[in-house]
Design a protein around this nucleic acid. Structure first.
Lengths: 339, 339
DNA sequence: GTCATTGCATAAAACGATTTGTGAAGCTAG
DNA sequence: CTAGCTTCACAAATCGTTTTATGCAATGAC
């Protein structure tokens, strides 16, 4: 059943009694062929089941219809799909679907900068890079190879860049804090990550701003993203150092889950003893006991916008970047003061 | 920052003062160059940051270092990542990692047979096809293009084929049924899917066999995979038609979840009123209330074996296929008779 | 001094498309 | 009849590799 060599442009040309140029022009609406000839060639081509070889075409056009995606924060983690990061999985899945709408397909590329990388990596049409950090080596690499890319979240080191899509983290943070304040919280502690990306930066500065506007004393903590739940747990003694805070706002889902556990072990349960909210929604926030109020960053919308921007750029169109996507607060039990 | 054309083999040749043939030979350990020349060329090449263009190389070698994966059962579903199918996600994730071990990377290809498909689809080195059904059009397509592939689960229409890896579903089914019987169940109902794939077929026939060996009357139901939880719910009246069964063994996680819900609504709770077990593990079986006993198909092991087999085949080595992977029963509350 | 033999390097032909430039007809205008 | 236009098709160059076949020195044997 093997040896069935695929039909090439040469085969079609032979059958149609024309040159390969004619075939190429007919199929790509180029050149100066007569409409009759075009039609005849098209007909024969489909009859023979001809499909242009993507590699050969790509070699000429330097476009192969595939974009890469680099999930930056996951590069750092040992496991590529730990629980609590389903924001990225949802984003990647949605990006793949969106890509199809533009006739592109999506290839996930693991860590572009270390180790042997996919041979195809540098032949892709463009990249989506999620949550780059300042002076991100992946971004630098793409720049040096002049491969187009769009980042999800601003690149903190490139304020002038416009090739990004991001969730409106400042607004989301204010919404969450307002919600907690409405629940009666006066002192709200903030827990962020340590990666130098725009998500952490924007949420943090929005928190500080909010505190100053509301005359609250900021209580502000950080824990490395990589530590996950353990990082959240370890923070609890500090969180309790000056008494139990009225509310805790944790950016990452894994920290939030760890905090909730460690708090419970000490006898503090949300929403009775404190309010809890999280900056991103995940399986963990949904299934926690009690379920944790969280911000839905709307990865599907973000993915659509990101891929659309990248697709335009690869098509050489003028990019209208810097797109902000509004998030949505999902109120759950952890922040609803009992009646 | 653009226009920074990548360094080609020609550039390296020019700098080294040799022919491009020499460069190619030096870098690929071919030809009859002297060891000194080889070394010198290698040095210059790395100094210049040369990396062979994957497309051009692929055009010659017809191997680009990328394999495709088709998640067959998901093609049928509207959404590509509905809850309860995380077996596939785990499998795909693990396959990607395994691929890297073989210097390959993995590209997920959505539905190869309908609609416009990735241009690159037919230039990939090979495919992993999960759970093909009888006369699967995807498999036929790959055959007709003589693209190598390995299936996860036997192709029911190709008993002579050896290019497959599968979980040992007959053994797993017996293990689960034995476990339920140990819990005191005499009548055990079986719920399978309707897809004509080997998973359904093997589990079903193992069930019938087990029943005849144990003198039990088989009570055996089917519901289309696509219906998900609703399909499970709708089956409950039939399941209860002849009284409450001692135990229910549902192959898919989504059916199991639906069954559990609809049973509870009628006042039947596992494990008090009946025992429940599921043929695959998923977020739903873990977080259900009570958590559902399930079979861990060990997607990571399956992925490793599958990719390894495919990698050998693409390298032209003699394939040793037909690999069976043992599953593992995870006992949870739904099947543990209270003391 | 000639003829093999060996050692080393290269020229040229693929791979399968796209694109640029050229030219052969057929037609019209003078 | 010829110059000038169109109209339509094709030859050949190109993309960046790999691979096959060829060739040139230098060495050794007689």
């Amino acid at each position: 059943m093997a040896g069935h060599r695929n039909v090439t442009i040469k085969d079609v040309a032979a059958r149609a009694g024309v040159s390969i140029t004619a075939v190429s022009h007919a199929l790509n609406e180029k050149g100066t062929l007569s409409e009759e000839t075009r039609a005849r060639i098209r007909e024969i081509a489909t009859a023979m089941g001809y499909q242009a070889d993507a590699l050969a075409r790509g070699l000429r056009r330097s476009q192969i219809g595939v974009i890469g995606i680099v999930l930056r924060p996951l590069d750092a983690l040992a496991n590529y799909s730990p629980p609590g990061v389903d924001y990225f999985l949802r984003f990647a899945g949605a990006a793949a679907v969106s890509a199809l709408d533009h006739g592109l397909s999506l290839m996930q590329v693991a860590d572009l900068v270390k180790g042997p990388v996919t041979p195809l990596a540098f032949s892709l049409d463009g990249y989506v890079v999620t949550d780059p950090v300042r002076d991100d080596p992946v971004v630098d690499l793409l720049e040096s190879r002049s491969i187009p890319y769009v980042t999800l979240g601003r690149d903190p080191g490139k304020p002038e860049a416009s090739n990004w899509v991001a969730s409106d983290d400042a607004a989301a943070t204010r919404t969450a804090l307002d919600h907690l304040a409405e629940g009666g919280a006066r002192s709200i502690a903030f827990v962020g990550g340590t990666d130098d990306n725009s998500w952490n930066a924007d949420a943090e500065s929005a928190y500080l701003q909010w505190c100053s506007e509301h005359g609250a004393t900021p209580r502000h903590f950080r824990s490395p993203e990589g530590l996950g739940e353990a990082g959240g747990r370890d923070l609890v003694p500090q969180l309790l150092a000056n008494g139990v805070p009225d509310a805790i706002y944790s950016l990452t889902g894994r920290h939030a889950a760890g905090i909730q556990e460690a708090m419970r072990e000490r006898g503090y349960v949300a929403p009775e003893h404190y309010l809890l909210a999280c900056g991103t929604d995940a399986a963990q926030t949904r299934t926690a006991e009690p379920p944790i109020t969280a911000i839905d960053l709307r990865p599907e919308v973000l993915a659509r916008e990101t891929v659309e921007l990248l697709a335009r750029i690869t098509r050489g169109q003028a990019p209208e970047g810097r797109r902000l996507v509004a998030s949505e607060l999902i109120v759950r039990r952890s922040s609803q003061r009992a009646e």
